[in-house]
Amino acid sequence: MTNDAELLSRLGAALAVAPPEPDAAAFDALAGAVRAKRIERTQALQQEARDERRRVLRGSPARRYAAIAAALAVSPVVACATTAVAGIEPPAPLRPIAELLGLDPTPASPDPASVDAPAYESQALGAPGAPVGGVADTDAPAPTVAPVTAAPASPVTTVPVAEHPHTTMPEAGTGPSSGAVPNITPGTTVPPTADDGSDPVPAPEPTPDPAPAPTPGNTPPTTGGGGPGANRGG
């Protein structure tokens, strides 16, 4: 009885043959296969690089930055500078680095001058809400004080018609307030104006005059609308 190793050895000797040496054609075929595989591998690498480039250009800024940083195997500062030079906006945390390096991190954004132009025009026109005070600084924070609005158009002054039949306005140039209200039609009552020139004080209701009817030719004293400071400031 033989063991397995011995039996294997005897079997190998019985089955053994002396194969021929490989011929030149076999080596030529092998060399051709190696060359073809090299070409295929090179083309595959080139295609992979093209696909990767397309993916980077299609991706978001953060993805582009990550791909470039990974491809270049550089520090974040260099990668950030590279992205800025390449015209790719780096992620927000790295934008200050790009600014410190003197790079424009947002080359694709619109021109700041064109963005601010409408604000200057609004200010020049005095539109409500326009910033006031010198040349606007685009980098400065928003003002904390409420913007000064342009003065509104003067309200229409209602000149009530005197209900009292005896209340008349003096002729222009005859009274102490001549010239103060040059356009008021005679026969109407002008509300009094405060001494300090602020908002006009509402005119009091005219009080009926108990006095007897004046004699023609006499000018009665002014009663309605004749508060302190009335018709002053001419």
Partner: peptide, 28 residues
């Protein structure tokens, strides 16, 4: 060649060995 020659004739065995090497290069 010895392994292929157990199942194929001499010429076919050599062709099979050459083909196997070519496939090995292609699938390395």
């Amino acid at each position: 060649s010895a392994y292929a020659g157990r199942s194929l004739d001499r010429e076919s065995a050599q062709d099979a060995v050459s083909e196997a090497m070519t496939r090995a290069v292609d699938r390395i």
